[in-house]
Amino acid sequence: MHPTVELLLQRRAEVSRESWDALWDALRDRSLDRDDALALLGSLAGALPGPVSSAALLESFAGRRATGPERRPGTVNVVGTGGGPATFNISTAAAFTAAAIGVPVVKSGSRAYTGVLGSIDLLERLGIRPAGSYPQIEDSLDRFGLAFAGGFVYPAELTRLARLILPAGLRPFGRFLNTLGPFLAELPVTAQVTGVSDPAVLPLLRDLAATVPDRRIWLSTNDAGADELLPFAVNTVDTNSGTVPALPAPSGGTLADLRPGTGPAGAAARFLEVVAGSAGDVATRTVAFNAAALALAGGHATAWEPAVAEAGKALREGAVLALVMRMRTDG
């Protein structure tokens, strides 16, 4: 068994960057066998590495990448950790809405590990193709103010692992991938808003955010266990940079107002109803709240109330749905 995998399985010591590098070298050189890869992923799925090991993992991935994209000031990434109650794709709706009010957004995400549709699944249903390269991200930002990042933004080592464990898939290891996923993508942004559904992982993510010098990170949680801000819940936001304006007080609504629709087709239809502003007041306020978070985190707004109002107006007056339709036909 590879020594790094043994370290992870024993859980007695932190894993250094050098150990992670040795593991990825073995994966690249095809000296890591399938059983080791499955044991590695099983260990990561069973218990996340500690903060030192996780930070070393991110450093290892970063050190193996080619030069990343040039960051665009004021551009925001939105991505959640997954899990929590079933809702429509709030963060994807918020990405469209924020872009519709002038906030440049790059949305990263994945296929569904726990819900009906992940962001990539939803985009396929909508007929919107994620960007396959950094120039495509730049082009989409220039044309629409919004880009959806394809899998190329994630470490190549994850793709190699997925191939090595075939015919098994990555779904059983979704907890690890969802939790650390927001820190794995290399994107041309200067801010990031990440919802965290499981408060138990928040201390780890706070520690990781503190090691990130090149973008402002907001980590949001709430007492409903969702990985997005909810207008009817008690929300908190932690940041690695500056301060966060006081959050609005909870108002009316329940999780039932945010239902996702039945099956993949129903979930896609429900999403279109949401971005058309016709899914009810609570759904509209929820999307507007999250779009406002992108505006504030990116430095495009300074107060919640006017930002939420502007986003709500864009939903109700059709600007958000119009952007969705433009990206479906012109993307």
Results as ranks from 00 to 15, higher is better:
2 H>R: 01
3 P>I: 06
3 P>K: 02
8 L>G: 10
18 E>N: 05
20 W>K: 03
25 D>R: 14
27 L>G: 06
29 D>Y: 01
30 R>W: 02
31 S>P: 00
36 D>S: 14
38 L>C: 07
40 L>S: 12
47 A>K: 14
47 A>T: 13
52 V>I: 15
54 S>L: 10
54 S>H: 07
56 A>W: 01
58 L>P: 13
71 R>D: 07
73 P>T: 03
86 A>R: 13
86 A>I: 00
87 T>S: 08
87 T>Q: 04
96 F>S: 09
106 V>E: 08
107 K>G: 07
110 S>G: 14
114 T>R: 14
116 V>Q: 05
116 V>I: 15
123 L>E: 02
125 R>E: 14
129 R>G: 01
130 P>N: 02
132 G>W: 00
133 S>M: 02
136 Q>R: 12
139 D>K: 11
140 S>D: 14
145 G>R: 04
146 L>S: 09
148 F>V: 08
151 G>K: 00
155 P>F: 11
155 P>M: 09
160 R>Y: 00
161 L>Q: 02
163 R>G: 12
169 G>E: 09
169 G>P: 00
173 F>G: 07
173 F>R: 08
176 F>Q: 12
176 F>E: 08
179 T>I: 14
183 F>V: 13
188 P>Q: 00
190 T>A: 08
192 Q>A: 08
201 V>P: 07
201 V>Y: 14
207 D>L: 13
208 L>D: 13
210 A>S: 15
211 T>L: 09
213 P>K: 06
214 D>F: 05
218 W>G: 09
218 W>V: 08
218 W>N: 03
219 L>K: 08
222 N>E: 10
223 D>N: 15
228 E>R: 03
228 E>K: 03
229 L>Y: 10
232 F>Q: 05
233 A>F: 01
233 A>G: 11
238 D>A: 15
241 S>R: 15
244 V>S: 12
251 S>Q: 12
253 G>W: 08
259 R>K: 05
259 R>T: 04
260 P>H: 03
260 P>K: 05
262 T>A: 14
266 G>L: 10
267 A>D: 06
272 L>Y: 08
272 L>P: 10
274 V>S: 07
274 V>F: 04
274 V>W: 07
274 V>I: 14
275 V>S: 09
283 A>N: 05
288 A>R: 01
292 A>V: 07
297 A>P: 10
300 H>T: 10
300 H>P: 02
310 E>G: 03
313 K>C: 02
313 K>N: 10
314 A>L: 02
314 A>P: 05
320 V>M: 10
320 V>T: 15
321 L>Y: 08
325 M>Y: 07
327 M>F: 11
328 R>A: 14
